[in-house]
């Protein structure tokens, strides 16, 4: 399964400035593992020490928050887009 991950501005230093990355995986967890392999450091920014999704990062599969699906176990299908949307507070 090839999934497009949308990288927010705050994390693009890890992808060499690229905003969209295609990675393989059948679940959100697998996609993030592949993303971390391709762009080391990414996993740490998305997941905490216990391997759970960080609470200040929202991850949307298409337009659904994965926290309200099956979290990291949410299955992904070929061609879907996973958007990483971190909380920002600037005004």
């Amino acid at each position: 399964m090839s999934v497009i991950v949308r990288i927010p501005a705050q994390l693009r230093s890890l992808t060499g400035g690229v905003g969209e990355v295609a990675v393989e995986g059948a679940t959100v967890a697998e996609v993030f593992a592949a993303l971390d392999k391709a762009h080391p450091g990414m996993g740490e920014r998305l997941l905490d020490e216990g391997g759970n999704l960080r609470r200040f990062v929202n991850v949307f599969l298409a337009d659904e928050d994965v926290r309200f699906l099956k979290g990291l176990d949410t299955p992904v299908s070929d061609g879907q887009t996973l958007s990483v949307v971190p909380a920002v507070a600037g005004g």
């Binding site: 609470r55 200040f56 929202n58 971190p86 909380a87 600037g90």
Partner: peptide
């Protein structure tokens, strides 16, 4: 519900620090 916890300050620079 949207942001259960804020990011640590080092991951969330303000506009004064990060620009806008």
């Amino acid at each position: 519900c949207l942001v259960p916890e804020p990011p640590p300050p080092e991951l969330a620079p303000s506009c004064a620090e990060a620009g806008v």
